[in-house]
């Protein structure tokens, strides 16, 4: 089953963990065959929020919500179950500085009769 591990960090801690350590973590996960994708994100002041309202495109500066801890990156992993995914999340280096939110991926319903 797929889980998305969302890395949340306070802005001042965005560089608290060395990139090399995150690279090593990703490499280890890739080697174990669990990693589907992982990326680090630019800070939220680079974010742009897009909405369609009344059929019209509305583009605004900034994230959709201002929060103390911001989304700093993600790991999409393939894990046996939640316990397995929690083990992975615990190994993501920013877990020491911020929080990792583990969310199961929902498969879209492609059953035509469903």
């Amino acid at each position: 089953m797929k889980y998305l591990c969302l890395v949340y960090l306070e802005e001042r801690k965005l560089h608290a963990v060395q990139d090399s350590e995150c690279m090593a973590c990703g490499a280890g996960l890739r080697e174990s065959g669990m990693l589907l994708a992982a990326e680090a994100l630019q800070p939220v002041d680079t974010a742009t929020t897009v909405r369609i309202r009344n059929g019209k495109l509305a583009v605004t500066d900034g994230p959709f919500a201002e929060t103390k801890e911001q989304l700093a990156g993600f790991y999409l992993v393939d894990a046996r179950d939640l316990n397995d995914a929690i083990q992975v999340a615990a190994k993501i280096p920013p877990a020491r500085e911020g929080s990792i939110e583990v969310r199961p991926v929902r498969e879209l319903n492609t059953d035509l009769y469903g």
């Binding site: 089953m1 316990n83 397995d84």
Partner: peptide, 9 residues
């Protein structure tokens, strides 16, 4: 939905 396994840790 989050697949919490039915197991002894």
């Amino acid at each position: 939905d989050a697949r919490i396994p039915y197991e002894v840790p």
